[in-house]
């Protein structure tokens, strides 16, 4: 397979991101014309209140949420894959998204709509899940497949917890089906802002640590001999991964497979180093959710599908192909 030049891959991604974002902003389910939206965008003061609300309270948060969630989940997957040396690892496969989701629900039950509580509990849930996965795989064996299976088992446990929470407290989230399948229909602006800020900080730290993270694929012995504190770096990388995933889940619910699909495609298509892969994954992850959201809004118009469901339809076969490919490579 011919590999893309990383600059070409990045610029194409940015161009597509701008196009998809523009399409999402200009076209939606309401009968407002694209020109009215454009007018409201460039002349906010004189714009009609309804159009302003559609633009600034519905469409723009939705676009930003797609970008934040896509970037967050993709980067989370990339970090998990690098730290664990396993391309099958992703926040959904390892149960991180379900763990974060369960704790977002618990937060809603215990603390109501507190933004800080939701974000903090989301992180705690995600981190607790990855800790459980490590404890299980430590006892079950250190093989790479064991880690994934431990993740799948923990994910199922967390998913059961989510179902239980929804049954016990059906009003814990605004739209429980949308939350469980992942949706951008009800984005909370404060949570979005909090998550975006958190991710920008986490992205900065990740870029700072990128040269060290780049040593993981060489194996622990070589990374150690080169002077990298392997255990410390792995722990920090996992914490960052969990931070990205939990921030995304608190915004858009349980969108699966983005963290699996995007980093693997980026790895397959381009020959980029870790820092470049990080940026490219963030851009293309955003593209995947933006494109998915446009499809979700229009496939069964006037009804709207949860974007997570559409991405799962794409992600599940991708996961199977990846397993088959890994098996073929031995």
């Amino acid at each position: 397979m011919k590999k893309w030049n990383k600059l070409g891959f990045t610029l194409t991604g940015i161009a597509l991101l701008l196009s998809l974002a523009a399409a999402s902003l200009l076209y939606g389910n309401s009968s407002v014309s694209a020109s009215s939206i454009l007018d409201a965008l460039f002349d906010t003061r004189n714009a009609d209140l309804t159009i302003r609300m559609i633009l600034y309270d519905i469409r723009l948060p939705r676009v930003l949420a797609a970008i934040v969630c896509g970037a967050g989940l993709s980067v989370s997957g990339l970090l998990l894959q690098e730290a664990l040396g396993n391309n099958l690892a992703s926040p959904s496969v390892m149960g991180v998204t379900n763990g974060a989701g369960l704790f977002v629900l618990l937060s809603a039950i215990l603390f109501g709509n507190s933004v800080l509580a939701k974000s903090f509990m989301s992180f705690i849930g995600a981190f607790l899940t990855i800790a459980i996965v490590f404890v299980i795989s430590r006892y079950a064996g250190s093989a790479k497949s064991t880690l994934i299976l431990s993740g799948v088992a923990t994910s199922a446990l967390m998913s059961a917890g989510i179902n239980l929470a929804v049954v016990i407290k059906p009003d814990a989230v605004y739209d429980k089906i949308a939350f469980q399948l992942g949706s951008l229909a009800n984005v909370h602006k404060d949570i979005l802002t909090f998550s975006a800020v958190l991710m920008i900080i986490a992205l900065g730290i990740t870029i700072l640590l990128s040269k060290g993270i780049e040593l993981f694929p060489l194996g622990d012995d070589v990374a150690h001999e080169l002077g990298m504190p392997v255990r410390k770096y792995r722990l920090i990388t996992l914490i960052l991964s969990v931070l990205f995933a939990s921030a995304a889940v608190s915004v858009c619910g349980l969108i699966s497979f983005v963290g699996l699909i995007v980093p693997n495609l980026v790895r397959e298509i381009s020959k980029a180093g870790f820092a470049d892969k990080l940026i490219i994954s963030a851009i293309w992850g955003s593209n995947l959710i933006l494109a998915g959201d446009i499809l979700a809004k229009n496939t069964m118009y006037p009804y709207e599908l949860p974007v997570g469901m559409l991405i799962s339809l794409l992600g599940a076969p991708f996961f199977i192909v990846l397993i088959a490919k890994k098996r073929r490579r031995g």
Binding site: P217, L218, D221, V222, E225, K271
Partner: peptide, 18 residues
Amino acid sequence: RARTVAYLPQTLIPVRLS
């Protein structure tokens, strides 16, 4: 330590790097 002692294990991973 890395500036003092370098070590190359027997099994080396054919990584996806130039």
